[in-house]
Structures are given as structure tokens and as C-alpha cells.
Amino acid sequence: MSNEAGTAEQQLVVFDLSGEAYGISIESVREIIRLQEITQVPRTPEFVEGVINLRGKVIPVVDLRKRFGLQERDRDSDNRIVNVDIGGHEIGMVVDAVTEVLRISSGSVEPPSNVITTADSGYLRGIAKLDNRLIILLDLEQVLSTDEQAEIGEVALAA
């Protein structure tokens, strides 16, 4: 998934979160499903929404708004669960809406350091500049990192 390949193309699944467009590589996306009832699991980090039944499998679901510290809002019919595969684990991510699948050339991706330097920039793989808009490319490994989850989990337990 290196960006250095120059003119190489990549396909992105683009979704909306609080008015911003985020993109993740299509290879990591297993499927996109409508919101369904989520069973809460006690004593988990706040952004872990719970678990769902996906054709007989129990899959954890993460609320990306909570993960990024964005304001919560009521769910509607546009909400989707993007089911991704991270290192063999299936994880669902609740997003506001899935908007499109895009093909971009790697040349249009800029590293994150040029654009943003916040504490959260670890989640970012870069920014894709298209004609008149920006798409934030996410590093899923970082977004859903279990290391950090463990840390957050400890904080939650200690509290």
C-alpha cells in the first residue's frame, strides 16, 4: 500500500464522517452493511460500540465518530457499518454514510505532515487532492490499533 509508486492507481471506499470525506483502501473492505442492532459489551473502551451478528459471526463494531472525538449525533438511514479486515480480524466501523468508490492516482496523495500536524495525525496516511476537494486517507491499522485500545481500556478500567 505504498504511495511512492508514482502513477500507480488505487481504489478507495469513500465515506462521510461529520461532513468530511474519508477514504480507505478498497482491499481492506469486506463489505458495507446497513446499521443493525448492536449489543453493547461492558468494560470496553467508549468507542467500541459493541458486537453484531454478521451471518453467524460475532463481529466487534467501532464508532468512528467517537474514535475521532467528534460530536455524536442521531443515527439515520444513511448510516452504514463498513466491515474491514485488519490483520485477519474483522471489525465493523460505524460511519455517517458511504458515498462512493473512487479511483485515484498515487501521485495525487500528499503525506499528512504537510497538511495537518495534530496529535491524531497518526491515523492519517495522507490527503488525496482531487479537482475541488480533499479526501482524508486513513491508516486503518492505526485507527483500530489494539495497542492503543489496550491503553484506553486501562484508562477506562482505572477510572
Binding site: 442492532e37 449489543t39 459489551v41 461492558p42 468494560r43 470496553t44 467500541v48 459493541g50 458486537v51 453484531i52 451478528n53 453467524g56 459471526k57 460475532v58 463481529i59 466487534p60 480480524h89 474483522e90 471489525i91 483500530l144 489494539t146 485500545q149 489496550a150 481500556g153
Partner: peptide
């Protein structure tokens, strides 16, 4: 019995999950 999976890991007080007749997950 279905495991909660390594992402969620061990949860105190919960041994796993199961899927009920109506398709919902119960702990």
C-alpha cells in the same frame, strides 16, 4: 458459544457471546 474475538479481548464478567433466535447477539 462464540468468542468475542481478540479485538475486544477478555472482558471481566463475560465469557463469550451467542446469537439468539431473533438474530441479536447476547452475551
Amino acid at each position: 458459544v462464540k468468542p468475542l474475538g481478540s479485538y475486544i479481548g477478555d472482558v471481566k464478567g463475560i465469557t463469550g457471546a451467542s446469537i439468539m433466535g431473533d438474530g441479536r447477539v447476547c452475551l
